[in-house]
Amino acid sequence: MRTLFVSYRVTELDRSLGFYTALGYIELGRVEAGDGARLVILKFPDEPAASLELVHRPGDGPVEVGSGFDHLAIQVELLATTLRVLAEAGLEPEPLQYPGGPRGPKTSWLTDPDGYRIELVEWPSGHPDGITAADFA
């Protein structure tokens, strides 16, 4: 088994699409789900398949974040460059952080229009992609 993608319910689809495309996602396709509901499937350009689905169900009312979901983590190559590009696109990333000390990963956070938190992570040189059991040794 493997995870296919994360799905977020969003209040205003166009606003959320603007945010996620500024973050770097591209649209793979859309599905009309009936009763005005729409699904938009996204991925980063270098990903082989979908990694994020935005679900817009206007009949369900606005999204209320905080019912258990914490955040989405996204790996980036060079965090300082990513933060500059995001700021130029009108997004507001938080300052660079070093949660594991100066030799650990670099992180920053931003919040999407519905309040979902996103952690941007740059691994130290030589670290494998993602978190592995070696990170807990």
Score class of each variant (00 low, 15 high):
1 M>Y: 13
1 M>E: 11
2 R>C: 05
2 R>G: 10
2 R>M: 09
2 R>V: 05
3 T>Q: 11
4 L>D: 14
4 L>F: 07
5 F>C: 03
6 V>R: 05
10 V>M: 04
11 T>C: 10
11 T>R: 08
12 E>F: 06
12 E>P: 03
12 E>D: 15
13 L>W: 03
13 L>T: 08
13 L>P: 07
16 S>V: 07
16 S>A: 15
17 L>H: 03
17 L>K: 08
18 G>L: 08
18 G>K: 12
19 F>V: 09
20 Y>V: 02
21 T>V: 06
21 T>G: 08
23 L>D: 02
23 L>A: 14
24 G>F: 10
25 Y>Q: 02
25 Y>G: 01
25 Y>V: 02
26 I>L: 10
26 I>F: 00
26 I>W: 01
29 G>T: 01
29 G>M: 02
30 R>M: 03
33 A>G: 10
33 A>W: 04
35 D>E: 15
35 D>G: 10
35 D>H: 14
35 D>T: 12
35 D>R: 15
35 D>L: 11
35 D>Y: 12
36 G>W: 10
38 R>Q: 15
39 L>P: 01
40 V>W: 01
42 L>E: 02
43 K>L: 03
44 F>Q: 13
45 P>S: 09
46 D>W: 06
48 P>Y: 07
48 P>S: 13
51 S>M: 08
51 S>R: 14
53 E>T: 00
53 E>W: 03
54 L>T: 02
54 L>K: 01
55 V>T: 13
57 R>P: 00
60 D>L: 13
60 D>Q: 12
61 G>E: 06
61 G>L: 03
62 P>K: 12
62 P>D: 12
62 P>G: 10
62 P>W: 10
63 V>T: 13
64 E>L: 11
64 E>H: 07
66 G>V: 11
66 G>D: 07
67 S>R: 14
67 S>E: 11
67 S>I: 04
69 F>G: 10
69 F>T: 06
70 D>L: 09
71 H>E: 11
71 H>P: 07
73 A>V: 07
75 Q>P: 01
75 Q>R: 12
76 V>L: 05
77 E>V: 10
78 L>E: 15
79 L>S: 06
80 A>Y: 01
80 A>F: 02
82 T>V: 08
83 L>R: 10
83 L>H: 06
84 R>C: 03
84 R>W: 00
86 L>R: 07
86 L>K: 09
87 A>S: 15
89 A>Y: 10
91 L>C: 07
91 L>K: 08
92 E>T: 15
93 P>Y: 00
95 P>T: 04
95 P>F: 03
96 L>S: 05
98 Y>R: 15
99 P>W: 00
99 P>M: 05
99 P>L: 03
100 G>S: 13
102 P>C: 07
105 P>M: 11
105 P>H: 09
106 K>Q: 14
106 K>G: 02
107 T>C: 07
108 S>R: 02
109 W>A: 02
110 L>V: 05
112 D>I: 01
113 P>S: 07
114 D>Q: 04
114 D>W: 00
114 D>A: 04
114 D>P: 04
115 G>Q: 05
117 R>G: 03
117 R>H: 02
118 I>N: 01
120 L>N: 08
121 V>I: 15
122 E>V: 04
124 P>M: 12
126 G>K: 05
128 P>A: 04
130 G>V: 09
132 T>M: 05
133 A>Q: 13
133 A>T: 13
135 D>R: 13
135 D>C: 11
137 A>H: 11
